[in-house]
């Protein structure tokens, strides 16, 4: 306990030192943008300054929040559906290899569909409600998650499998005891990528047709010549994506404590 309380300030300092370059680069970008927008004579209806975007975002916070909620709902529900389906299919594929040859071509084709073309069609078929959004989010995130899981199972150390079978474990025990935990790093890598796709997918679906949501909000703002509000909505979606991304990182830290421990120098040395 003593050790952890003395390392905490050092860890915070380390985090600040690590994030400093990112803070500086983003800050520089915003300052340059602000200076250009204010002094080049460009009209705010073409390129608003970041300060104006922030000001308008605060003024319109009610509408932004109101429109962000359906987007968050579509993202999370779609992603949850996609994740459950990917897990079920990954298990099936792991146990019945022929299924992989039957299903993967279909899934790969699903990844080649241009979202621009498919989103309006899905809206046409399923209406302006939640269903087409969930479907589109699932469409863009399902395959990456499935591939991550299947690859993760296959990354199981062969000797662990051999040892478990020698212990008398059946296929299901080997799966639960070895293959599933071995897939965790791959799962989280897939999760980090897919969660960003999920937000983009939801906004795209709303763009193609929705009653409410950040996507349709952006479309309306654009049509009303309000780029400041478009950018405010973009900022909200960026924050939303970053928060979800951060959650996956946090989740990984909680789910895989051995990862952290292995990297920390513990004085005992890893080898020898």
């Amino acid at each position: 306990m003593l050790a952890s309380s003395s390392t905490r300030p050092r860890r915070v300092a380390g985090f600040l030192a690590k994030s400093a370059p990112a803070v500086i680069s983003v800050g520089l970008l915003l300052v340059t943008w602000e200076l250009y927008a204010n002094h080049s004579g460009i009209k705010p209806t073409i390129l608003p300054a970041p300060s104006r975007v922030l000001e308008q975002a605060i003024l319109n916070r009610g509408a932004l929040i109101d429109n962000a909620i359906p987007t968050i709902r579509a993202t999370l529900l779609g992603f949850a559906c996609s994740l459950s389906a990917a897990f079920v299919f990954s298990v099936l594929v792991d146990f019945f290899q022929p299924l992989r040859r039957a299903l993967f071509p279909v899934f790969i084709v699903s990844q080649t569909l241009p979202l621009v073309a498919i989103a309006p069609l899905v809206v046409l078929w399923f209406g302006f409600g939640l269903a087409p959004k969930i479907l589109l989010v699932a469409l863009v995130t399902f395959f990456p998650m499935l591939v991550a899981l299947v690859q993760g199972y296959e990354a199981t150390e062969a000797e662990i499998g051999q040892m478990l079978r020698a212990m008398g474990a059946g296929r299901w025990r080997v799966f639960v005891l070895a293959r599933l935990p071995s897939a965790l790093p791959y799962f989280f890598a897939g999760l980090r990528i897919s969660i960003t796709y999920a937000v983009v997918g939801a906004i795209f679906a709303e763009y193609a047709g929705a009653a409410k949501g950040l996507g349709i909000y952006m479309l309306n703002a654009k049509n009303n010549f309000r780029p400041d509000l478009v950018l405010a909505a973009v900022a909200v979606s960026a924050v939303l994506t970053l928060v979800l991304f951060g959650l996956t990182v946090l989740l990984q830290r909680i789910a895989m404590p051995w990862e952290r421990v292995g990297r920390e120098p513990s004085g005992k040395g890893r080898r020898g």
């Binding site: 212990m167 070895a178 935990p181």
Partner: peptide, 24 residues
């Protein structure tokens, strides 16, 4: 059976690695 490399499961603590055979 003891395989070539230790085949310890990185996600299990040492005590839970040693009980693996009994668990099975």
């Amino acid at each position: 059976f003891m395989p070539q490399r230790d085949a310890l499961m990185p996600w299990r603590r040492i005590i839970d690695n040693t009980t693996l055979g009994l668990e099975v």
